[in-house]
Design a protein around this nucleic acid. Structure first.
Length: 376
RNA sequence: GGGGAAGUCGCAUAGUGGCAAUUGCAACAGACUGUAAAUCUGUCCUCUUCGGAGUUCAGUGGUUCGAGUCCACUCUUCCCCA
């Protein structure tokens, strides 16, 4: 795997590039739809390819390890074969579940013990076995096992957590180096910057992570409760330290405006459940702002959802019809909302890339951000 | 014609002397950021300065300190027998 930096914006830290993998090229900046359990919820692979043109999607180590389990994934020949997705895949390590399943886990130096949310059984995740599990899943990009620290953690906890994440990283790198891909194509390990909302910790973490000479670098532990401005500041601090010739991946972010602000600050890759989850909950992202399709005002709006969209459903179906489907709890409604939002996110990063190449990214972004944050 | 049962805030329900009144649905809003989420929260008689205030349980009248609840009559609906 390698990264080509195609263009750097003169007025900001925004960049355009291409990430080459054995499953195909990924133009950056890029948004990666989240497919936790080997499926992007409510969206067919056909739609991901044709309507949305997703270049890479995520899977999750914790969820796939619990179900279907490693025996099945190994027998299938890895996740690409199992779910029929022949483009690149990235797996998160379970570090986010250390945060989101806080009531069901215990962190120790060795690793983290989880109680399964499915059947209550106990499992131990260590940096070593998380590398082994991600070898079996077989994503093109795999993530270091970290702790995603809560946004309101105090300084001492954030420091301890960060230092432990660094020690875990060393063990991840060691194990990763001692093992081979199982299915005949390369895998890259991305380390993750932590440090919560503390400037000196973020700097320290970025320096430590940068010293690992990885193929890409991730920024974790943001958008977990801290103010948006703090998040932007942390991105600036970290990206000033991370090498420029490798992709930077901002984990779990965010709103359309968050994406553009982070791109301006030099981020290349994003993933977030927001387009799919909020879509299933009736929220549409558009160039004019957010639409709550459940609201009565859409009952009689017979305009197509988005005539400019790459997704056929956006051109064919109207707001009124979608309003009806969501109220009637028809599954098709969830599908249309999810496809629309993902197509919108991919269009947003595609346009961002185009404007970086054309050299007018900042003015384009500054005009668009206030629109994106409105409520329609 | 005779006998029986029942009418509660859109619908359906709870309530057997202290009640602006239970619960579900519907409706109307809001939240959601490396997915334990097709989930969760709020409002849902009227007004409100969010402290409260005012009118309610088919209708009318009565008993009672106090009635959705007890009594009388009226109206309406359903069931059974002719």
């Amino acid at each position: 795997m390698n990264f080509t930096l195609t263009a750097s914006d003169r007025c900001s830290n925004a960049r355009a590039g291409v990430l080459h993998t054995d499953h195909g090229d990924i133009p950056t900046p890029i948004f990666m739809p989240v497919g936790t359990q080997g499926s992007v919820k409510a969206v067919h692979q056909r739609e991901l390819r044709q309507d949305i043109d997703a270049k890479i999607i995520l899977g999750n180590t914790y969820h796939l390890y619990l179900r279907p389990g490693l025996d099945i994934l190994r027998a299938a020949g890895g996740l690409h074969k199992f779910n029929g997705w022949e483009r690149p895949l990235l797996t998160d390590s379970g570090g986010f579940q250390v945060f989101s399943l806080a009531d069901n886990r215990k962190i120790k130096e060795e690793g983290c013990t989880f109680r399964s949310h499915i059947d209550g059984s106990k499992h131990l995740f260590t940096p070593e076995n998380v590398m082994d599990i991600q070898r079996v899943i077989g994503a093109d990009i795999i993530m270091a096992f970290d702790e995603c620290c809560p946004g309101d953690a105090d300084y001492n906890y954030a420091k301890q957590s960060m230092e432990r994440t660094h020690r875990w990283l060393d063990r991840c790198v060691k194990r990763f180096g001692e093992t081979e891909p199982l299915y005949g194509y390369d895998q890259a390990l991305f380390p993750i910057v932590q440090g919560c909302q503390y400037r000196d910790l973020r700097r320290k973490s970025a320096e430590y992570i940068a010293s690992k000479e990885a193929l890409g670098y991730a920024i974790g532990g943001l958008a977990v409760g801290e103010p948006t401005e703090v998040m932007y500041e942390m991105i600036e601090i970290v990206n000033a330290i991370l090498p420029t010739d490798h992709p930077r991946y901002l984990m779990g972010v965010g709103t359309p405006a968050n994406l553009l602000e982070a791109i301006e600050r030099g981020v290349d890759m994003f993933d977030c459940v927001m387009p799919t989850r909020n879509g299933r909950n009736g929220l549409l992202f558009t160039m004019n702002g957010t639409v709550n399709i459940k609201n009565k005002k859409w009952e009689t709006c017979f305009e197509p959802i988005d005539p400019e969209s790459t997704a056929e459903c956006d051109r064919v179906y109207t707001f009124a019809y979608l309003h009806h489907l969501i109220h009637a709890e028809e599954i098709l409604g969830l599908q249309i909302c999810s496809i629309h939002n993902l197509a919108f996110y991919l269009r947003l990063v595609r346009e961002a890339r185009q404007h970086i190449l054309e050299g007018d990214f900042v003015s384009w972004k500054n005009a668009l951000v206030p629109m994106l944050s409105r409520r329609v």
